[in-house]
Computed example of a mutant assay.
Amino acid sequence: MDDEFGAAYAGSLARDHVLGALGNRTVVQALADGEPPRAVWEAICVDMDVPPERRLGRDTRVARGAQGGQAGQAGRSSR
């Protein structure tokens, strides 16, 4: 939630925003009641109109072969 909404707003949203899809509970209440985090995240995404392409969060991995990647490192020995 921090990545999508910013830390301050994400905290407020989790505590205060009531989600009908989760039985009129907040994110905090739903998680405390044992709802799966993925289901809670999907409910908040629908309610807040988060586009599908941003629902998996930021990808911070470096592609293999890109600068800083690990391509070609496996199986190499240092001599």
Rank of each mutant, 00 (worst) to 15 (best):
19 L>S: 13
64 R>W: 08
44 I>Q: 02
54 R>C: 06
65 G>I: 07
54 R>T: 04
68 G>A: 04
18 V>S: 01
74 A>E: 13
66 A>V: 02
1 M>L: 13
64 R>Y: 10
59 D>C: 04
16 D>T: 15
8 A>I: 11
56 L>K: 10
63 A>K: 14
28 V>N: 11
5 F>C: 01
12 S>I: 00
30 A>L: 02
46 V>D: 06
54 R>Q: 11
33 D>K: 08
43 A>F: 11
50 V>Q: 00
6 G>L: 04
41 W>S: 07
79 R>Q: 02
62 V>C: 13
38 R>I: 13
38 R>S: 12
70 Q>I: 13
37 P>V: 13
68 G>P: 06
35 E>N: 06
72 G>H: 08
3 D>L: 07
65 G>R: 04
52 P>M: 09
51 P>Y: 01
33 D>Q: 11
57 G>A: 08
16 D>Y: 15
50 V>E: 05
43 A>I: 07
63 A>R: 15
58 R>H: 12
75 G>Y: 08
69 G>Q: 01
31 L>I: 13
54 R>K: 13
17 H>Y: 15
76 R>N: 02
72 G>E: 08
25 R>G: 02
77 S>R: 15
1 M>K: 07
29 Q>H: 03
67 Q>S: 12
11 G>T: 06
55 R>S: 02
40 V>P: 03
72 G>R: 08
73 Q>K: 07
52 P>D: 14
57 G>H: 02
52 P>F: 04
3 D>A: 11
65 G>M: 06
26 T>V: 05
61 R>G: 10
46 V>H: 04
5 F>L: 14
30 A>H: 03
25 R>Q: 14
19 L>K: 02
9 Y>W: 14
28 V>H: 09
5 F>Q: 05
63 A>F: 03
7 A>S: 09
79 R>P: 12
49 D>R: 14
26 T>M: 06
73 Q>A: 12
34 G>T: 04
20 G>N: 11
40 V>T: 01
52 P>Y: 09
77 S>F: 06
75 G>K: 02
14 A>V: 00
